Simulated assay, not measured.
Amino acid sequence: MQTGFRLNLTPVKEPLGFVKVVELLTAVLAFGTCGGYTGRNVVSIFCGGSSNETLSPTFTYPFRLNQELLVENTTLCNRTVAATHLVGDSSSSVEFFVAVAVLAFLYSMVALLVYLGYMHVYRDSDFGPMFDFVLTAVFAFLWLVCSSAWARGLQTVKDATGTAGIESTLALCRDNVKCEVTDYASMRSLNISVICGFLNLIIWAVNAWFVYKQTRWHSQKVNAQQAAGRGPNPAPI
């Protein structure tokens, strides 16, 4: 059996290779829409009779909100306000999400290289398709876990940076002073990242079926079904 590189673009035209290309692109989209994100909300503080104040808290990837300053030591509404940070930490969920996306991207690239250059080796061995199937199934599970975790983490970010979160965090807002977020940072890309996560779950689960069809587990099942359909051989006369 020849094991050298032999370029063949046919697998890309088949579901097995085409879905891998889609996986590669959606993985890039997943980590590209949340990594490096920076947002800033504008908080208006209505002091009543005196002049109003404005705060502009910034929050960035990986969303360690408890390290992001809401306000420094200053005076607001003629009152001294101590340095206050935002509340919450979504770093573990978003970093897990990004790690899975990057690993999925790298594995998709390696798998495509195998499909395009070593498909003759891949299909002539038992190990290749079985290893591919196991890893594809593992990634489908990881996408489920990390997307669910990041969806919850994103909701934590939204709650902490919204009006209710700011009011519960800044002591000044509980002392006859109204605080309201009047300008929200766009979180469209973060919402897209969550959608891409669950989209990847579906794509990798579908791809697991196409990879499973390449394994000997599937071929043995098909052969057994065909043998059962033919029935027992007639007894010799």
Rank of each mutant, 00 (worst) to 15 (best):
E95F: 05
H85K: 04
S91D: 13
Q214T: 13
S93K: 03
T136P: 06
F97M: 07
L116D: 05
A83P: 04
V28Q: 03
F141S: 01
F105H: 04
V19A: 03
V114M: 12
I192T: 09
M187R: 11
A151G: 04
Q214S: 11
E180T: 13
S125H: 04
Q226S: 11
V157C: 02
W217L: 15
L86W: 03
F131Y: 07
V145I: 09
S44G: 06
L103K: 02
T84R: 03
D183E: 04
L69V: 13
W143F: 06
R64V: 14
S168F: 00
S44M: 10
G17V: 01
G162P: 00
A137M: 06
K221T: 12
M109Y: 00
V28Y: 00
C179F: 01
A228K: 11
S93F: 03
H218Q: 11
S186T: 02
N66D: 13
V157A: 02
P129T: 01
V98T: 07
V22T: 03
K20P: 15
P57V: 09
W204K: 01
Q220K: 09
Y115F: 14
E23F: 04
R123W: 07
W209V: 07
C196V: 14
P232S: 04
V138C: 09
F96N: 14
S219D: 11
A160F: 06
W209F: 12
S186Q: 07
I166R: 03
Q220D: 12
V28H: 01
V21W: 11
C47I: 13
N8G: 08
G36R: 08
N176L: 11
V81E: 07
L29N: 01
F59G: 11
F5D: 15
A111S: 14
A164G: 07
A27I: 00
R174Q: 15
W209I: 06
V22C: 07
F63Q: 05
M119I: 15
C47N: 11
Q2M: 08
M130A: 13
D183S: 10
R123Y: 08
H120W: 13
S90I: 11
V102H: 10
D126Q: 14
N8F: 11
N8S: 10
R123K: 15
F31S: 04
F97N: 08
L7N: 04
T136A: 01
A140K: 02
R40S: 13
N233H: 07
A185T: 02
C34L: 03
C77M: 09
L69M: 02
I203G: 02
C196E: 05
H218W: 09
V71M: 05
T3S: 08
S168I: 09
E14S: 13
N78E: 13
